[in-house]
Design a protein around this nucleic acid. Structure first.
Length: 296
DNA sequence: AGCCAGGCAGAGA
DNA sequence: TCTCTGCATGGC
C-alpha cells in the first residue's frame, strides 16, 4: 500500500443517504469497498464515506478545491424544501419514508447519455459491467494515489467516435453499440451541444436528445434529470411504470397514456426526485437493492 | 428453461 | 394512435 499524502474534505450534510444515492441506478461506476464508495468523477478518483452529519471525501492525488465534488453530490440542495414540493399523497409519502436521504446527483452529461444508451433492456448489474468494460478499454488511466492502483475515467466522446461498432460490441453492449457510436460522433463534432441543453426548455432539450438514434423519451429524460438540471424530468421505465400502475391504479390494468399523463401532471417541479423515490422504493421492495445503509 | 431487464424503432392494424 | 416484434446479452 502507498503511504503517500492524502487529501480529505468533509461536507456537512443531513438526511443524505450516500448508499441509496450512489447505488440507485443513477450512476453506474461506484463500488463499495472497505466501508466506502470508490469512483471516478470528472476524471478524478475519489473515495466517499458517511460520518456524523458529514460526507467524508478522500483522495491520494490533489483534488483541487473539491467544488467539482460538491456540485456532483449536490450537497447544498435543501432536501426538505424539495420534499415539500411533492403532492401530498400517501403513495409518495410511503416511498419517501422507505428511501429517506435519497438524493439526485448532478452528473456529466456525456457520461450520463452514453451510460443510458447502453442501458436499454439490461439489468442494473449488467449495465455496470458494460460501462466498466468500456472505461477499462477506452478511458484515460487515473490514479487514486501515488503508486496506487490504476482506475479509468469515462471515455471521451471523441475517442469512442473513432472506435468501430464491432470493437464496442466487445464490451457486451450488443445492438446498442451503433447508437453509442452515433452519439459519440454527434457530441465530438459539436453537432450536439450537451452543455447547451441546460439553457433550453425541458421540451426543447428533450427533442434535441431524441434526435439521436437509440434515444427515446425514457433515455432523454434520464439525461435531463441526472445531468441536465431538469428536476421535473420524469423517466418512466418498467419499474416506474409498475410502481405507478400498482400504487396509483390498484386492481386494474392501466393504459400507457394514463401512466404518462400521471407522470407529467402529478408530481410537480421536482417530479424527477419523486420518480427516483418511486423507482428505488419499488426495487427495494422487490429485493433488487443491495443492503448498504448509511443515512447521515 | 423460460422470462425479464432503468428501450427503441419500424411495421402493420 | 395502439400493439407487436426484433434487437444482445446475462441473471435468476
Amino acid at each position: 500500500m502507498s503511504s503517500g499524502r492524502r487529501w480529505v474534505r468533509e461536507f456537512r450534510v443531513r438526511d443524505y443517504d450516500l448508499g441509496a444515492t450512489l447505488d440507485s441506478g443513477q450512476a453506474f461506476r461506484w463500488v463499495f469497498r472497505d466501508g466506502a464508495w470508490e469512483g471516478v468523477v470528472g476524471g478524478r478518483w475519489v473515495r466517499l464515506s458517511s460520518g456524523e452529519g458529514v460526507i467524508r471525501a478522500e483522495s491520494g492525488v490533489d483534488p483541487g478545491n473539491w467544488e467539482w465534488l460538491r456540485e456532483y453530490l449536490r450537497v447544498s440542495v435543501d432536501l426538505e424544501a424539495v420534499l415539500a414540493t411533492f403532492p401530498p399523497d400517501a403513495v409518495l409519502a410511503e416511498a419517501v419514508r422507505s428511501c429517506r436521504g435519497l438524493r439526485l446527483l448532478r452528473q456529466d452529461p456525456w457520461e450520463c447519455l452514453a451510460s443510458f444508451l447502453m442501458s436499454s433492456t439490461k439489468q442494473i448489474p449488467q449495465i455496470r459491467q458494460v460501462v466498466g468494460l468500456l472505461c477499462e478499454r477506452w478511458g484515460k488511466p487515473v490514479r487514486g494515489s501515488e503508486g496506487g492502483p490504476m482506475f479509468h475515467a469515462f471515455p471521451e466522446a471523441g475517442v469512442l467516435a473513432k472506435v468501430s461498432e464491432s470493437e464496442l460490441r466487445e464490451c457486451r453492449m450488443g445492438f446498442r453499440a451503433a447508437s453509442l457510436r452515433a452519439a459519440a460522433g454527434a457530441v465530438a463534432s459539436g453537432n450536439l451541444d450537451l452543455e447547451g441543453l441546460k439553457a433550453l426548455s425541458l421540451n426543447e432539450a428533450r427533442a434535441r436528445l431524441e434526435g439521436l438514434p437509440g434515444v427515446g423519451r425514457k433515455i432523454a429524460d434520464c439525461v435531463l434529470l441526472f445531468a441536465g438540471g431538469f428536476d421535473a424530468a420524469f423517466p418512466v421505465d418498467v419499474w416506474v411504470r409498475r410502481a405507478l400502475g400498482e400504487w396509483y391504479f390498484p386492481g386494474r390494468t392501466v393504459r400507457a397514456a394514463e401512466i404518462m399523463a400521471l407522470a407529467e401532471g402529478h408530481f410537480g417541479p421536482y417530479g424527477g426526485w419523486a420518480q427516483q423515490y418511486l423507482f428505488h422504493g419499488i426495487r427495494k421492495r422487490a429485493g433488487r437493492v443491495a443492503p448498504v445503509a448509511g443515512l447521515v
